[in-house]
Write a protein that binds this DNA or RNA. Sequence first.
RNA 1: GGAGAGAUGGCCGAGCAUGGUCGAAGGCGCUUGCCUGCUAAGUGAGUAUACUGCGAAAUCGGUAUCGAGGGUUCGAAUCCCUCUCUCUCCGCCA
Length: 424
Amino acid sequence: MLDIKLIISDVENVKSKCIARGLNIDFDALIKLDADRRKLTTDIEVLQNKRNELSKEVGRLKQSGNDTTSIQEEVKKISENFATLEKSLKNIQLQLDAQLHVIPNLVDDTTPIGKDENDNTLVRTWGTPKEFDFAPKSHADIGTDLNMVDFERGVKTSGSRFAVLTGTGAKLERALISFMLDTHITDGRDEVMTPFLVNSKSMFNTGQLPKFSEEAFTCEKDDLFLIPTSEVSVTNLYSSEVIPTATLPIKHVAYSACFRREAGSYGKDVKGLIRLHQFNKVELVTICRKEDSEVELENILTSAEKILQLLEIPYRIMLLSSGDIGFTSSKTYDIEVWLPSENCYREISSCSNCKDFQARRGSIRYKDENGKMQFAHTLNGSGLAVGRTLVAILENYQNVDGSVTIPKILRPYFNNMEKIEVSK
RNA sequence: GGAGAGAUGGCCGAGCAUGGUCGAAGGCGCUUGCCUGCUAAGUGAGUAUACUGCGAAAUCGGUAUCGAGGGUUCGAAUCCCUCUCUCUCCGCCA
């Protein structure tokens, strides 16, 4: 959520940053609403003040045994008067909130202006895609041939976009989760394992609601949502808190399953493990002072990259353009991993600086060195999407005989096996 | 699921039966002045948040907040209703 005061004081800037996202928002109407809100607030408070004074007077007079009926009636009239004003104030507040809640974060000055993903800019590439002297198979074929994944039974139990990992597939997924967690913990992050179900307030705070309710799975009976990312539950660990400044930055790493309805992505990546309704992810979340978030975003990116470097899989870093960046983010790096069968890079991580956007919604604060309350900055990044990492391993480490070599760094998590081979 | 108890400031905790002078006693903690060779002790002062008004700003004024939301009343921490959460006991369960 944006600060209404910022909108008022710097409309042109706010407006142009929304236009950069392809949004034309009527800020004049918004500012007018807020002016009405102030006016009404003052009017009401004047009446309340009068009421309070008179009520105190009644108390005093009663104690000394005087008649107070005339004052009481006067106060009653005042109260009736401001009851109606209060109603319209509430109404205005609701309208104001409704508008404010769907305005996205302001993009950072370093975010390239653009229409869509084609305007994302390449930051750097790492590693060189391996030259295969045979036609590389897709991960779906490799996984099926090696009995690592069962797509049919996933569909049978849950429907389309669900898959079952079996045998070495399940083991590899688990190995990856452990490897990622261990690596990030070594880098100084505190592991947390948080609920996979959260309430609507938490979904609102991190920006999934109200605008993207179609994207989330719900348990409506209980006002609970399945998390689309553990960013939601981890960031909300600190909602409505004033964090002791000495403990900042807070750096967490969390494993969770993630659940996404993938509404609007019909036909995309229907085959394989790329786009499922449920997937595993190791998430990095940082909460820090506002002056530190720029550096902390780079730290998250570096940590996420490290996983692919240790696995020795080529990737590239893209800086998302204003047309492709997410609702809550001001600056986002995507890490895209090389997939030989598709002959292109595919997203495997997204690292975002949300600045104070989520903190304002969820009231995550700290006191700065002057004792002044500040909204913290929140950041998150995948470190990494586990299923897609498994995909990348299968494809990049496949051999001509159909086997898959286990990346060296992963072998301690895999009974020191060197290869996954077709069972005879 | 059944029965009961509870939710007050950074923390502990009084107030609620008998509504007013209660943003709220007292204690702890914290900040700060004095004192002191240093520390401790002592002693004085201060110590919530949000919104809002005047103002360049500090300051100052107003309003709200005693789990949340409604209601009664001239007036609610205190009375009534609804909800949420916590704790204890029983049952059930990984």
